[in-house]
Write a protein that binds this DNA or RNA. Sequence first.
DNA 1: ATAAACAGTGGACATAGGTCAACGGTCAAA
DNA 2: TTTGACCGTTGACCTATGTCCACTGTTTAT
Lengths: 135, 135
Amino acid sequence: MKIGQISSKTGVSKDTVRLYEKLGLLTNVTRPNPYNNYKEYGEENVYRIGLIKEMKRIGLKLSECKGIIDALVNNELNIEDREKLIQSKIKQTNEQIKSLQQIKRFLQEHLDNDCAYNNSLMIAKLRGKQNAPEQ
Amino acid sequence: MKIGQISSKTGVSKDTVRLYEKLGLLTNVTRPNPYNNYKEYGEENVYRIGLIKEMKRIGLKLSECKGIIDALVNNELNIEDREKLIQSKIKQTNEQIKSLQQIKRFLQEHLDNDCAYNNSLMIAKLRGKQNAPEQ
DNA sequence: ATAAACAGTGGACATAGGTCAACGGTCAAA
DNA sequence: TTTGACCGTTGACCTATGTCCACTGTTTAT
């Protein structure tokens, strides 16, 4: 498919598709027609962009997205190295999940304190010298 | 404490401390000495910067960090609005956790396929037209 | 008293990740 | 065949998040 189609199919702009291509996040982009030099994008790039969107949404940088994708499809690595690479990505992901859960607990605690007696050590820590709120 | 001290205590550069202050992420920054105009940072800012670092690590932007901190300490909001704000942050956090778990499952699946028979639908989807790997 | 370390300000610069506009070529439908 | 939608390239521009530098003033150690 041409760039307009993959753009509307994935919901990212044509410029962004071109950027991702330039950054090496896409694959198998060809120019099959000798009379124009339109590029041709296959379905795997739709899939890649979808995955990139998902990873970006949770805060991964494009270079990290590329790292993951490359780890998954890299033909040059032998099985052991690829396995190690993916294991390390999984570890990173686990750590991020833990951090998020911590933040969630943190928020939840604030919420509980708000409802109960509106006085939390953490609020105090964030607020500093101000007086306790009264509302 | 002065900027050098909070900088080394938190591990972020002085410039970054100044940037965070300018962006409204810190609080209670004063200039207690009338003869110099050195700024004074309290312990609550150490705590804030630590929290910011944690949130940044998992991909939150500074504006989002500010959103969360403000939601937690905002005195202007009444309890209901603050509760709603925090609830929405918790919801966002939950969605991020789900995404991460999906990516983790995704990685795990690749790993399993790698070990088992090195041939996965998803790898194929990412790879596109290339031949199946043989290694 | 003087040098070194520290502080503040302003502005330039850097990188990531895009977005947009201009220009010229191409395709498709009326 | 002409018009409008599409494509590629280039380069400017934008926000976010910092970093660095020059200049000035202050504090501290010797």
